[in-house]
Amino acid sequence: MPEFTLWDIVRNLLLAARWTVALSFIAFLGGTVFGLLLLLMRLSGRRVLERLVGIYVQLFQGTPLLMQLFLLYFGLAVMGVNTSAWLAACVALTLYASAYLTEIWRGAVAAIPRGQWEASASLALSFGQQFRHIILPQALRIAVAPTVGFLVQVVKGTALASVIGFVELTKAGGMIANVTYEPMLTYACVAAMYFVLCFPISLYARALERKLA
């Protein structure tokens, strides 16, 4: 039976952690783009669009991310779409992130006094110009700290992608624990790596909050 050193464990976990980072990055980026789109739909003043986005947000906030992953992974397969665990995880986490981000940003936009909309409207700015030049720069200051804070949730959320067989940090930890018979050591390393990823982000969010307050 082969012997495993601590370095063997850490090295393999680090290799898998790349996928955690990649998945977080894609989910956050996709969530940002899609979330911004949802935000504009919500601010459009069209009742139907507002309602639809509202339902979308409630749906994703009211169900476990785990179920969303399952439904997407198996649901796509049932519908005949040839999907991989990687693709399903990316899509599910993107949708999940977009629902939360759009809600965070809606709150930030709502915090901008109505007078800002009115003053810019009375200066004949179009909706797009109002949003781009007046609302967005002010809302950004409010939203940036909670947005960065949410990134931590996304990083930890990627752990759930392990259940559909995507080999990221958590899944790799499980596999290594099985082979090495060192579950405590392995999972401690896994936890430490998540912490190393998340802690600086939390610190950064808090610093931003202080700076922009």
């Binding site: 006094p113 007078g115 800002q116 009115e118 003053a119 810019s120 009375s122 007046i134």
Partner: peptide, 11 residues
């Protein structure tokens, strides 16, 4: 239009 609360763009 000029408003009661000025509504200048603070940024």
């Amino acid at each position: 239009m000029i408003f009661q609360n000025f509504n200048l763009f603070p940024h």
